[in-house]
Design a protein around this nucleic acid. Sequence first.
DNA 1: GACCCATAGTGGTCCGACCACTCTGATGGT
DNA 2: ACCATCAGAGTGGTCGGACCACTATGGGTC
Lengths: 234, 234
Amino acid sequence: MDDGSAPQKGTVTQRAIERIKAMIGEGRLEPGQRLPTERDLAAQLGISRSSMREAIRALTVLGVLEARHGSGIYVTRLEAGDLLETFGVVADLSRGPQLVELLEIRRVLESTATALAAARITADQLAEVEKHLTAMNATDDPEEILAHDLAFHREIAAAAGNETMAAILEGLSSRTFRARVWRGYQEEGAFARTRREHAAIHRALVARDPEAARAAAAAHVGEVEEWLRAQLGP
Amino acid sequence: MDDGSAPQKGTVTQRAIERIKAMIGEGRLEPGQRLPTERDLAAQLGISRSSMREAIRALTVLGVLEARHGSGIYVTRLEAGDLLETFGVVADLSRGPQLVELLEIRRVLESTATALAAARITADQLAEVEKHLTAMNATDDPEEILAHDLAFHREIAAAAGNETMAAILEGLSSRTFRARVWRGYQEEGAFARTRREHAAIHRALVARDPEAARAAAAAHVGEVEEWLRAQLGP
DNA sequence: GACCCATAGTGGTCCGACCACTCTGATGGT
DNA sequence: ACCATCAGAGTGGTCGGACCACTATGGGTC
């Protein structure tokens, strides 16, 4: 007799994670749907509540599940923002050459997103971009500048119409990541250059010129990339 | 008196995750280094072993830690491959319009990687690419074709010299992802077209022509992208 | 010197209890 | 009949302890 627990590969928790992931992949669990209780789930898979909790915690951190205290466990909407939140961890824990690689990726994606935005951005979205551009130029507080800088690019990424790309870029621009790289970059008086580059991006958006937008965004990220590369070299 | 446990935001497990992440970010824990035992860690943070285990499990799934039964808990190398393994989950759980967005991202990254590879690929790497190309054309078994197809692009991504980009592309080409999309795509007799496109990519690599390589790769992914878009439309 | 194995130490699993929070339905007043 | 209130059940969160499975180490044996 096969009781269905034949394989026995890996830890029981790992197997539980795969089982739940499979249930979602096969459509047996829909986005937003509520799961059985931890106790029931554990009983169904024949494992202890402790092990099941570890599996649930892992999937929670991955943005697949969401646990609401006192209410239950739910599948997230499974949208880009939910699943790619963990992408920020990569940016936060990367160092040295890996940071350059991440900036290289950001350059490629950011320039593409900016080009798409130039073709698709609405008047309202453009107004929002301008708001952050002027606010960024109206203060000398590095913290505030950084916040508006992030919002500036976030608005553009949103206007590109690819939520997944926007979510990845969000992770590649996470607060801690930017703070670590930009701290040194802007100490070299790069504020003026940054403002010029942002202005160029904005002009391209207003002109609805995708190629100009792509070039401006690539140059913008490329500047930081080259600076960081030089920092690591010698 | 402040006992240092003032904040109390979120669950204790979540706080433990942040603490360990911070330790790594601050360099107090180096890649490959061994951590204290679960029991010691729990005591240090003043939480139960159960909660600490959930934190460790979460970081294990994220590719930050690695638990070796009977030996101890270690920090991974923190390289792109380790941290981006979870990226495959996104591809596996995405559906509908989100799949198109992922293919759009793959088109951008794959074309960039292929262009870089055209400029940097070594003779050995090129030979490996050719091996998979011929093997792919020498069989009719869809499974085998898929395997060599994946390896073909994997070699090219590796030759591009950006490990992080290669790791992301790996996630975007995970077995289950490709299987889901390509099943339908190739049922329409797309084998011939796929072979032509792969040949074009290979020619560009041999000619060391980055722009031709970029175009060929973009067209290759774009074909699948358009097909999928059409599938979802009506 | 090489091999083997008892042993201590570590992560993996399970259990049971209790706490903190949420939701619901019965209660009582208007 | 309606609504505000609140006690109870149900759920996730935390804890402590026990035992199992595996690894690594060092001493003993040949």
